[in-house]
Design a protein around this nucleic acid. Sequence first.
DNA 1: TGTACATCAGTGAACGCGCGTTCACTGATGTAC
DNA 2: TGTACATCAGTGAACGCGCGTTCACTGATGTAC
Lengths: 193, 193
Amino acid sequence: MKVSKEKAAEHHQAVIEAAAMSFRESGFEGVNVADIMKKAGLTHGAFYGHFSSKSDLAAAACRYAFDDRLNGWADDVSLTDYLDRYLSTFHRDRPGRGCPMAAFASDIGRQPKAVQKEFEVGVSRYRERIASRLAAGGAPKAIRQSDRQSDATALLAAMVGSMVLARSTRSNRTLSARILSDSRSAIASRFGV
Amino acid sequence: MKVSKEKAAEHHQAVIEAAAMSFRESGFEGVNVADIMKKAGLTHGAFYGHFSSKSDLAAAACRYAFDDRLNGWADDVSLTDYLDRYLSTFHRDRPGRGCPMAAFASDIGRQPKAVQKEFEVGVSRYRERIASRLAAGGAPKAIRQSDRQSDATALLAAMVGSMVLARSTRSNRTLSARILSDSRSAIASRFGV
DNA sequence: TGTACATCAGTGAACGCGCGTTCACTGATGTAC
DNA sequence: TGTACATCAGTGAACGCGCGTTCACTGATGTAC
């Protein structure tokens, strides 16, 4: 039955949020449309009234995940604190609301162009955010702008790589935990954050 | 028709190698059994004479990929040279014979335990290899053993993270290339390799 | 403000395709004599 | 060494299931009068 425009808009958003979580937890191929719709409180038939295809939803979910993550990084949270949270077992064990880069990683290359584009934009924004925090963090003036850019990239790569490796080695609890803590301390001593 | 035991063993190996390449290129879900068998020069029906399931093959292929990669790193190739090769566009654009960690990354968590175990063992071995090269590379004595371990982990994470991000941002050629080069130079200046 | 009707968000059955897996069959291998 | 036969690697058709997508239908919404 028909539903008010407001309700329909809420449903639309609910589907995106359910997808953003499920896709991060299980990958784009690991969830089906019916399950996402159920999670959003609807039946699968309503899906194509909201999105033209599963890929279309994947793009929207990818964008939402990046937005949500970037907005969730409050201005008063320092890069150091952010890194502590990022490289935590808490984050490792809860990919659903976590970093989309770590969650989608190798998946993204097999997605349609539109999804890849959203991802790429998200990576750019993340990288800029880190570069600006690196600048604000009282780093020595001697460090030039270009070094800060490459440091930001290397830092981002180290973060994503650590999380990906920590998640994929969960069969060895000590190794997985060490990847996070070793990486955290090396970043601290090498990058000063 | 029946085939000599030698030939059958060759076939078995051919299937593993075809799978190791295809899985790295397209992910575990991105290739089907029939295509792998065709690549190995056989028909799909012969598959279950060699492996009990697609997952069984995935585990064998994962192990093979790590072995192949580790063996491919000759003793006379320094860590510095290895990093140059690893963080290259050549490697980025040819995942089939490339690093299994970067190729499987977020996929591995959705695979059966047996596959995850092979992956975890591979990561451990890779990490040890890097740690030993870090030690041999004329690093200052002042650096303690424990720091070397965490440096090796951070380095591995940075390598894998860079490759994963570079591959997933190919829609933006400059960004993708910058991720590799920025990361490479930051690693050089921060880790001295 | 109240009534009549067109709109359209949501439902659930059905379709079609891809893919992992099974199976009866084939014919070369390799062993027993 | 040669022959007869059991074995078994490989073939290709078929099965069954999951999933993305479609569609006829329902009934609440919201608009025209």
